[in-house]
Structure formats: C-alpha cells, structure tokens
Amino acid sequence: MALTLDDVARIAHLARIEITDAEARRTLSQLNDIFALIAKMQAVDTSGVEPMAHPLGGAQRLRADEASETIDRDAALRNAPAQQDGLFLVPKVIE
C-alpha cells in the first residue's frame, strides 16, 4: 500500500501543519520509503501477544486530585507570543 498526495494533504491537515505542494511531493516519497520499512513488522504473527505500551508494565500511577504547586501567572505568560491582561491572545474564534 502506498500513500497518495491526497493522503499527505489529509495527514498534514490533521496534524495542523501547512504544507506546500512541492513539500507534499517530496514528503510523499520519503513517507512511502518509511512505510515500506515499517511493513516488515506488519507480517509478524502476534496473535495472543499483549501490546506493550510501556517498558515496566502495569497501570500508570495517578496522583491525588488536589491542588499542588502552581506556576506564577506572570512566569507562565512570559513566553507567550501574544498576551493581554493576564490572558493568552488568539484570533477571534466565535463571531
């Protein structure tokens, strides 16, 4: 199975990365090379094998649902590309 240019455009949209047609064409052949490599593991018989999500197994630890340390608001906003009145600014979403 090989990807098409439409697939690349669709994936790039899902990933929210703008991509030019030239980039999409270059990416297409690279992705197909990589998926040809990946295909080697698809043929393996894994019936009855439990998926391994994590090297040490078991469920992930959950912490108690209580407030702990917080980052100071000014410190949290210091790296924001746009901010005002202690809030992150983004383009208007709801007209």
Binding site: I11, L14, I38, M41, Q42, V44, T46, V49, E50, P51, M52, A53, P55
Partner: peptide, 20 residues
C-alpha cells in the same frame, strides 16, 4: 488515525513485547 491504529500502533506494541 482512524482505521490504521490497530494495523500499525497496536501491532507495533505487540512486536515490541516480543523483542522485550
């Protein structure tokens, strides 16, 4: 993405266990 998750991601996690 929808429709490929089992064939790729879950399969990869299973082969990962075989390796471990």
């Amino acid at each position: 993405s929808h429709g490929y998750y089992d064939a790729y991601y879950i399969q990869a996690q299973k082969v990962r266990r075989l390796i471990a």
